[in-house]
Design a protein around this nucleic acid. Structure first.
Length: 597
RNA sequence: GAGCCCAUAGCUCAGUUGGCAGAGCAUCUGACUUUUAAUCAGAGGGUCGCAGGUUCGAUCCCUGCUGGGCUCACCA
């Protein structure tokens, strides 16, 4: 990021208080391109008293005057009363509320040490949580500014930068220390010398600042003897005191449970985890721009629905008090997106969460993210080509190649991808005679021999589908489009023109897992009503997940829906493939967990 | 929901055939102005997940529970 861009937004508007404005002007000068190398104000170093405690205008009567935090609101040293350290218990375990601050039972000595440091800072007139610094530079911008300069050239250039971030390492030498600052763009080392930052600021650093704290550093860039780009600090500022210690520097945080529950810690210490979620964001951005560029309109449809439709799954139920009615968290946006096709939005998509009240596994989280998109005047075959183009293009833009490494294997997304009918896949992977796969008796026998317990209401289509999932799906390496799904298991798909028992549908399978599901949409309102009625029969026969009747959706279809094709892609699973993550919890920031003991 | 495995210091992990609980990092004290897991000397830090049982004695053996992981099942 160009430093100038950041600096440009720095100057105050002129209607703020003078102290703040002066402060901002000073900061802006430090980061502005044209002023690089200019020396900062001499003697303007952090020390006691802290010149940068930002006076806060408090309207009279707002807030009780005795609360501890009001100490921050005065100006200069000697204000208010100090010397009370209400949150620092003497020792030992205890719980209570002292001086308005809560002391928690699980705070150990490490935490107590840090609280003590924060309280000592307050007592010295220094706010341990000031918000009066802008990071003029990112660590990456500072690196870019140094470029390939030799140590001598860099010293000559006297590039002055200021960065802020979490202090993730500290190596102290008595009268000097190396610290590492981590921000959104990377890491950068700073060298803090007593004779550079001043006696007071240095002693503050030594006594009160720990690894894990958020800090701000300003100084000029140089290269150390060992070749590391470093800020020679002239000013140093604690911006936020962390009272909990970070995990150990070498092994980091390894406990899976803690990583999922306290993702904030995981993100601080595990760079790879940050990278996974950056990749996730880029994947979603790619999908959004791909569809938007092709004239798809991004929409948002209800996530709380009176009828949970568009998929076969158990929904979560919730209740609206004022309306006095139960609502379902959606299991799919499908039926609403198709209503929009009726309404004239011929190309729509939605990227958001769906909720399914089913088990949790490495492949399933109760809430998961899908993109669903619908295109009028297109068929499922058009969507195969679109999917190939979108995902291979995604791989190219992310990695510069269509080949993706996943769990020790290479997946090549270069089109075209294999297309294989369900029955052919069953025949191939299950070593079964394909010509008998339309024989209900044979299918039932096969299902039973595989340990499947067919329901009474199951027809040949459902049986074939179950056999496919048992013997074929996991073996398909892919990427492959599985086609010719039975109409029985596809209540929303358009019937094939030549074979009434199958629909124009595909599932995208990669490494044995369903990544996408797409079909030409059923737009015959009477056929759709018949399919819903069949689903009702299945439901009455005991299939909890059979599709529910949705009269309003039928009414929409009755107004005429253009011929169309639609697709849903499971974003989480796609991200797993693209980040080499074996568990869906590794690609969801806050995966669902049981209540903490 | 079932099976198998796991839970010891803030973190990463040892350990006890049942007898006062260990290391490294982190913390605290001291030394150290170009380090890279900095180094050196010293100190503190534990309800051994929770509850029962067996036992002279349980962190260890047994039972139950809680939380987590993996594999099934369900599903995308």
């Amino acid at each position: 990021m160009p430093a100038g861009a950041v600096a440009a937004q720095e100057p105050g508007d002129g209607d703020e208080d003078p102290a703040l404005e002066a402060l901002r002007a000073g900061d802006a000068a430090a980061g502005r391109e044209g002023d690089r190398g200019a020396q900062g104000e001499k003697g303007h170093r952090l020390g006691f008293p802290d010149p940068f405690v930002r006076p806060r205008a408090v309207p009279p009567g707002e807030g009780p005057p005795d609360r501890p935090r009001d100490r921050e609101r005065g100006r200069g040293p000697g204000r208010g009363h100090q010397g009370v350290h209400p949150a620092v218990p003497s020792r030992g375990r205890g719980r209570g509320i002292q001086g308005g601050r809560r002391v928690k039972e699980d705070w150990n000595d490490l935490v107590r040490d840090r609280i003590r440091k924060a309280e000592e800072l307050r007592a010295s007139g220094i706010n341990p949580y000031p918000n009066d610094r802008k990071a003029g530079w990112t660590t990456a911008a500072a690196r870019a500014a140094a470029g390939e300069k030799s140590p001598e050239e860099l010293e000559q250039a006297a590039v002055r930068v200021d960065v802020a971030g979490r202090m993730v390492a500290s190596r102290s030498f008595g009268k000097a220390a190396f610290v590492v600052v981590s921000d959104r763009a990377g890491r950068l080392q700073a060298y803090i010398r007593r004779d550079k930052v001043g006696e007071d600021a240095y002693s503050l650093f030594v006594k009160s600042v720990d690894v894990g704290d958020i800090v701000w550093v300003e100084g000029t860039l140089f290269i150390t003897r060992t070749g590391e780009l470093t800020i020679l600090a002239e000013r140093f500022r604690l911006l936020s005191k962390a009272i909990r210690p970070l995990p150990e520097k070498w092994h980091g945080l390894a406990d899976v449970e803690t990583r999922y529950r306290q993702r904030y810690v995981d993100l601080i210490v595990n760079e790879k985890v940050r990278e996974v979620f950056r990749t996730r964001a880029r994947i979603i951005a790619h999908i959004r721009s791909y569809l938007t560029e092709r004239d798809f309109l991004e929409v948002e449809t209800p996530m709380m629905q009176p009828v949970a439709g568009g998929a076969t799954a158990k929904p979560f139920v919730t209740h609206h008090n004022a309306l006095g009615m139960d609502l379902y968290l959606r299991i799919a946006p499908e039926l609403y997106l198709k209503r929009l096709l009726v309404g004239g939005f011929e190309r729509v998509f939605e990227i958001n969460r769906n909720f399914r009240n089913e088990g949790i596994s490495t492949q399933h989280n109760p809430e998961f993210t899908m993109v669903e998109f619908y295109q009028a005047y297109a068929t499922y075959e058009d969507l195969m080509r679109l999917t190939e183009e979108m995902i291979s293009g995604m791989a190219l833009s992310l990695f510069g190649t269509t080949e993706v490494r996943f769990q020790g294997e290479t997946i090549d997304f270069a089109p075209p991808w294999e297309r294989i009918p369900v029955a052919a896949a069953v025949a191939r992977h299950g070593n079964l005679p394909q010509e008998r796969l339309s024989d209900p008796a044979f299918l039932k026998e096969t299902a039973l021999s595989l340990g499947i317990e067919p329901g009474k209401e199951w027809g040949p289509g459902k049986l074939l589908s179950a056999v496919f999932e048992e013997v074929a799906e996991k073996k398909i390496r892919g990427p492959a489009f599985v086609t010719e799904y039975p109409i029985e298991v596809s209540p929303l798909s358009r019937r094939n023109d030549l074979r009434p028992d199958i629909v124009d549908r595909f599932e995208l399978i990669v490494r044995g897992r369903e990544i996408a599901n797409a079909f030409s949409e059923l737009n015959d309102p009477l056929d759709q009503r018949g399919r819903f009625e069949e689903q009702l029969r299945q439901r009455e026969a005991g299939d909890e997940e059979a599709h529910a009747m949705d009269e309003d959706f039928l009414r929409a279809l009755e107004h005429g829906m253009p011929p169309a094709a639609g697709e849903g892609i499971g974003i989480d699973r796609l991200v797993m493939l693209f980040t080499d993550s074996p568990s869906i919890r590794d690609v969801i920031l806050f995966p669902q967990m049981r209540k903490e003991g």
